[in-house]
Amino acid sequence: MLRGFYTATSGMMAQQRKQEILSNNITNAQTPGYKQDQAPLRSFPELLIHKVENHDIPTRSGFKPRTMTELGAINTGVYVNEAIPDFAQGALRETGMTTDMAIEQVDAPDENGSVFFAVQNGDGEERYTRNGNFTVDGDGLLTTNHGFYVLDADGNPIQTDGQEFDVTTEGVVELDGEAIPLALSYSAEPGQLTKNGQDLLELAEDADELADARAVDGLQISVQQRFLERSNVDAGQTMTSMMEAYRSFEANQKVVQAYDRSLDKAVNDIARLG
């Protein structure tokens, strides 16, 4: 009985975690370049169930040996191991702002490969983002909407001295006859990147360094100025998934309540009769 109690409880906890992830996706449905998180459920290690039986052997002593018959495996519950970002390309929308940029990925040598803008966070470390909703700070430097410096191909902040500049489809900022290539980083396995807050992504500790997108054979991208990439959140599908998670939570809750009533009866009624 207790095994079933714990199994149903783990189901409630997993659905609660899934609901939190889906709610965060809905919250960021209008965030440029946001990549929705997926919440796959995984099962706990299986237990192998056996049946113990007695077999009669026609002997004078009436020997009855015990044997074990394998019945099969059973899972002891589920859990959400981690939120996995979906790096699928979002649709582009025109804004008319010169500081807005979007990466349109036309073709890539790897099916799941993805390109990112390189930026510098508050600690001076390199991070990555798909949110091209940039602006210019008081010092004339190109920054993200959170104030992080957008980097050029040499890893330096980009000085624009205002919002009057052009960006080519190759990702080169043209300003007063000067050409400054944006730092565009490519990852063949973007799943190695983890969300770091404020629309930033960082590499896992054991992940390979990102490559210069311009040096990757077979990669075709186009940087669109005055455009932003929409989030890839499907609001309708996400709302449906939230309702499914809520109903699954309720179903597991009813199982827990049923086990609770059974335990209450066993402790208070059956024990009293004994």
Rank of each mutant, 00 (worst) to 15 (best):
A29Y: 02
A29Q: 13
Q30R: 06
P32R: 01
P32F: 02
Q38K: 11
A39V: 09
A39F: 06
A39L: 08
P40T: 03
L41Q: 07
R42N: 07
R42L: 05
S43D: 08
F44E: 05
E46G: 06
E46P: 00
L47N: 08
L48E: 10
I49L: 14
H50E: 14
H50N: 14
K51S: 09
V52D: 05
N54P: 00
I57N: 10
P58D: 03
F63E: 12
F63Y: 12
P65A: 03
R66V: 07
T67G: 11
E70I: 11
E70G: 13
L71H: 04
G72V: 06
I74T: 14
I74H: 02
I74P: 01
G77A: 11
G77L: 12
V78L: 09
Y79H: 10
Y79C: 10
V80Q: 14
N81P: 01
A83F: 09
A83M: 09
P85I: 11
P85T: 12
D86S: 13
D86E: 12
F87T: 05
Q89P: 05
G90Y: 10
L92Q: 10
L92Y: 11
L92I: 10
R93H: 13
R93I: 10
T95F: 07
G96E: 10
G96L: 09
M97R: 15
T98W: 01
M101H: 08
Q105T: 13
Q105A: 06
V106R: 13
V106C: 02
A108E: 06
P109Q: 02
P109V: 02
D110L: 03
E111H: 06
E111F: 03
N112D: 13
G113R: 05
S114E: 07
